[in-house]
Every structure is written in C-alpha cells, then in structure tokens.
Amino acid sequence: MESKSVLLVGVGGQGAILTAKILVNGLISAGYDVKMSEVHGMSQRGGSVSTQVHFGKKVNSPVIGLGAADILVAFEKMEAVRYSPYLKPDGIAVINDYAMESSTTAAGLAVYPEGCVEAMQEHFTCHVLNAQAIAASLGNVKCMNVVLFGSMVKALGMTDIDWEAVIAETVPPKFRELNLKAYRAGYDAV
C-alpha cells in the first residue's frame, strides 16, 4: 500500500498525543511501519499543537508538508482551518465542532473567525461532530479525544484492527470503560 499520513491538530492539553498513541499502537499491532512526530515545550502552554502519524509498509519522513495529509483530525474547529493547507485536496477531515478561545481572542485583541466548519465542508469531505458534548454526556469531557478517535476510525475505514482491545491496553485501567464508551460513541456519531 501507499503510505498514509494522519495529522492531528488542536490546542495544548486537549489530548491529541494520547489519541495518536492509540492509533500508533493499533497500526503496529497490524504490522505497519509507523513514524509519529510530536511537538513539546513552549507550544504546550495553550498554544496550537500538531501531532503527525505516518504509516505504511515502509515509511521515511515522520512529518509532512503542505498538501500531503490524507486525514486531518481537528480537536478544535479554528485549528481545522489553520492546518487545512496541509490536507490533500481529496483528503478527509474529522472535525470537533467546538471552539476554544485563543489568548488573543479572549483578550479582545483578535476576533474568533465565523464559519470554520462550513468553510471546511465546502472544500473537503468532512465528518463533523461535537465530541465535547458527547464526552460531557458520558460524564467526563476529558474523553473527548477518544470520541474523536472513534469518528476517525470510521472515517478512515480502518475496521480491520481490534481498536477496543488497543484502547483497553493503552489507557489507564480506571479510565478503560469510559474510553471504550467514548470510542463507540464517536464511531456512531459520524
């Protein structure tokens, strides 16, 4: 197979790295070569963050440039817009219909843009859900990342991997049930 690139974007602290970890653990169990790139440090203090997963029979670069991602998973809708130039024109976007103010918009120094989701839908195949609300309905907004992961698995059509087993192995035991519920809810939401 051709190698595939998944770009996960959001705001520091939203849990993109755990999502990528689940994805990567599943891909490894299925025998893929995988490279993953994270950003640490300064950008984690509420800044815009991205994590990339590149997988295939044999992969070289852990990162991609413009117009090269097959899948964009956005944990926040303005971040979907920010990273949209990285998505292939025929790429797929999974978008959390959820806005987080940036320090500039919160302070009134800039205005949060209108119509982020609609603009993405106009140009790409999109799967949109309110993962935040789904996570809240499950009793813990922190499992929002795994809700999105469920939606991504469906959007990717990667159903040949036992993702529930991978999640059970990857997350701490006390959050296992919650995350399995979150995964199923996300899968069913798109």
Partner: peptide, 15 residues
C-alpha cells in the same frame, strides 16, 4: 504542493 484555501483565516493562538 497543491493546497486548498478554505477562505477563512485562523487567528494566532500563541502560548
């Protein structure tokens, strides 16, 4: 690279 301009601009999100 072939990229798509969605027509909406993200504002900066500094740490």
């Amino acid at each position: 690279p072939v990229t798509v301009d969605v027509g909406v601009k993200a504002v900066s999100r500094p740490p």
